[in-house]
């Protein structure tokens, strides 16, 4: 098991390097003149040359890349163009907030998806199963930004059940209850699409497993249906994990819309605000830490996978 994890961990390194290269290249291909924007309108050609030199823009590209990488690895993402502050604390605060929202949405999506998937697989012709199927189909097609907006109108504004935006109320004291209250609507909105996908995948996975020979073998050994179902669900966990892992990636990206709508101070909102300000260092840092978090989460999913499925460990 340890060896398995170590192997997987080592595999992450080239992927992270690749990620950094992709981000570095996007910095380089961006149209526009970062030096001019740093320099302001009063810059003389001499000042410009000096700044270019200081920024290392005259070095060969690989040197620039490694300089940039060295900074990035130490958590130095440069300075925000719009705010003139260092990017790192901003981005890591936002990442933490995004992870809270992602975790809540993932948990919700998993519960909803498994319940609906199991229901639609085991009671195929019931009314509830039909409703479940319809829900799964519609929810995977939903534009989250508009669902978020509509939830705001009807549940937050009209019904007054939940706060409209933000993470904490200005005068709410910032407690756990306050956070939960603010978390519900964005989490529900973010969970819709992954819940539908998990439901569909889990449904077909339950049907697959229930059609496998060992289910009949278990029945022939005299096991009760409940016990057989338990075996079956156990056997769906590897594929459930795979889907869940993919969906976490989806969530980390998809929350951009949700955060923008609910003003949730996460990576998504940070990136969204930075787009209008063309604050590229912040956008890049945001994408980079998200990708890093995603790769780490995948490692965790892999570890769980190995824990659950002995076939993965040995291969």
């Amino acid at each position: 098991m340890f060896g398995f994890l170590a192997r997987r961990g080592l595999l992450m390194i080239p992927i992270l390097l690749g990620v950094s290269i992709v981000i570095f290249i996007t910095i380089k291909i961006i149209p526009g003149d970062p030096v001019a924007s740093l320099l302001g309108p009063t810059g003389t050609p001499e000042a410009r040359a000096a700044l270019e030199d200081r920024l290392g823009l005259n070095d060969p590209l690989p040197v620039q890349y490694f300089t940039w990488l060295a900074h990035t690895i130490t958590g130095d993402f440069g300075t925000s163009i719009a705010r003139q502050t260092t990017v790192s604390p901003m981005v890591f605060d936002a990442l933490w907030n995004t992870l809270i929202l992602t975790a809540a949405a993932a948990a919700l999506a998993l519960v909803l998806g498994v319940v609906i998937g199991a229901l639609t697989a085991l009671r195929r012709d019931g009314l509830l199963a039909r409703i479940g199927n319809a829900f799964a189909l519609v929810s995977i097609s939903v534009p989250q930004y508009s669902v978020g907006l509509l939830l705001i109108i009807y549940l937050a504004d009209d019904a007054g059940l939940f706060p409209v935006s933000g993470m904490y109320s200005p005068n709410g004291g910032g407690g756990f209850g306050d956070l939960m209250n603010h978390l519900i609507l964005p989490a529900v909105t973010a969970a819709l699409v992954p819940a539908g996908i998990i439901a569909r995948m889990f449904r077909s996975s339950v049907l697959d497993v229930m059609g496998m020979d060992f289910i009949e073998a278990l029945r022939a050994r005299g096991l009760s249906e409940r016990r057989i179902l338990w075996h079956a669900f156990h056997n769906t966990t590897p594929s459930l994990l795979t889907v869940a892992g993919l969906q976490i990636g989806y969530l980390l990206g998809g929350v951009v819309f949700v955060e923008a709508v609910f003003s949730w101070p996460g990576i998504g909102q940070l990136v969204y605000l930075s787009i209008s300000q063309r604050d590229l260092p912040v956008i890049q840092a945001g994408v980079l830490v998200s990708a890093f978090a995603f790769v780490l989460l995948n490692l965790i999913v892999d570890a769980l996978h190995g824990l659950i499925d002995p076939r993965v460990r040995t291969h």
Partner: peptide, 15 residues
């Protein structure tokens, strides 16, 4: 390895 939507946003923001 990138969260897909975020990558799309980054690319279109860059372009």
């Amino acid at each position: 390895a990138f969260p897909a939507v975020l990558l799309a946003i980054a690319i279109s923001a860059a372009l």
